Amino acid sequence: MTEYRAVFDARIQFVNGGGLTAEGFRLDVPSADVDERTVGELLVRHLGLALVESVELTGFELVEEAHTGSRGMVASAPAPDGPRYIDLSHTIVDGLLTMPGMPVPRISPHLTREASRSVYAAGTEFAIPRIDMVANTGTYLDTPFHRYADGHDLAGLALERIVSVRAELVRLVDSSTRGIPAEVFYDRDVTGAAVLLHTGWDRHFGTPAYSASAPFLTEAGARYLVEHGVGLVGIDSINIDDMSPESGGARPAHTLLLAAGTPIVEHLTGLAGVPPRGAAFTAVPPRVEDFGTFPVRAFATIG
């Protein structure tokens, strides 16, 4: 479904004096045929303002652009034919490059269909493949054991932390900085939520550009999410932490989130199709003992 946003400058006056001005403001709108008055009302709701006397918009235009979650918008009703699912996982194939420097997965047959014919009854055949890979392959989930020796592993991961978790998607594709600050979460109810960071960096997956100047969650951003009881954090980038040489190998986001028992899902894809609010997130790995990380089939449910 095509989504639209309004772009404008604004001047707001209050009945009890004072005012606010904004330049180049971008706001989600329900359709392409809204007028300036409607957008003015949406702006007041989005900012949570009271005692407004007047709203004046200038330089007004509508652009075709994905919503970022402006408050005051009425959520669309679920589709009458039931829920819709959006796959957020990369496909694992033989030789897939996920992290530079890590072994790529190798998929080979353990038992071919041809060879199985001599094992089973006439007309019956099976294929049993095998895969050799590191845990950090494709779209995967981190548990505390990935970072801390005494943290719980995949076998200790509670299903309620990773199944049908209320999603708060934060759209950051137009961000001018690599580091995602705490401030972008101020207008979101992150408590118990799966906070999904849509940077658009998944467009580089499998290429050298994927690891160069990639977006990441700052230490302040991670601390804010932990302090406000976030349920899970996912990102469509190579790492939730800064992997550049300037980081010196520090991993504050992993350190803070996993210390709090918060699962992390990295290398997501397809987040452009997820609304800012109103979806549920699921990412389930197998129940493996003494593993802190493993690939998942991550998906969003809408409706």
Rank of each mutant, 00 (worst) to 15 (best):
D242E: 13
F8Q: 08
L27Y: 11
V163L: 08
L154M: 03
N239P: 02
R203F: 12
P285I: 01
H152F: 14
T282E: 03
D28E: 07
G48M: 08
G234I: 00
Y140V: 00
L111Y: 04
G303F: 07
L217V: 02
E183T: 13
A122F: 04
L154W: 01
V119M: 14
L47Y: 13
L268H: 06
V104Y: 00
R203K: 15
G156T: 05
R130F: 08
A298I: 05
A283R: 01
R113T: 14
I12C: 06
L154N: 11
V39E: 06
G303T: 02
L20C: 00
E160G: 03
V7L: 12
T177Y: 13
L49C: 08
V63G: 05
R297D: 14
G59W: 03
V284D: 03
P295T: 09
T58Q: 06
M102C: 09
E160R: 12
N136F: 09
G292T: 01
D242G: 05
S164T: 07
L49S: 11
L257D: 08
S164G: 11
R130T: 10
L257H: 02
V7F: 06
T255P: 00
R37M: 13
F145E: 07
L96H: 05
V296I: 03
M73D: 15
D236H: 12
R171P: 06
R297M: 10
L27S: 11
V288D: 02
A300Y: 09
R203S: 14
V274Q: 07
V265E: 01
F60P: 11
L169Q: 07
T91Q: 15
M73Q: 15
T58M: 00
G40K: 04
G95W: 09
D81C: 07
L43F: 08
T301V: 10
F216A: 05
G249Q: 04
G69C: 06
V7A: 13
E61F: 06
A66K: 13
E53R: 10
H198I: 02
R130Q: 14
V63Q: 13
A259Q: 15
P263Y: 08
R113L: 08
T207I: 06
L27D: 10
S176P: 08
Y210W: 11
G248Y: 01
P215I: 01
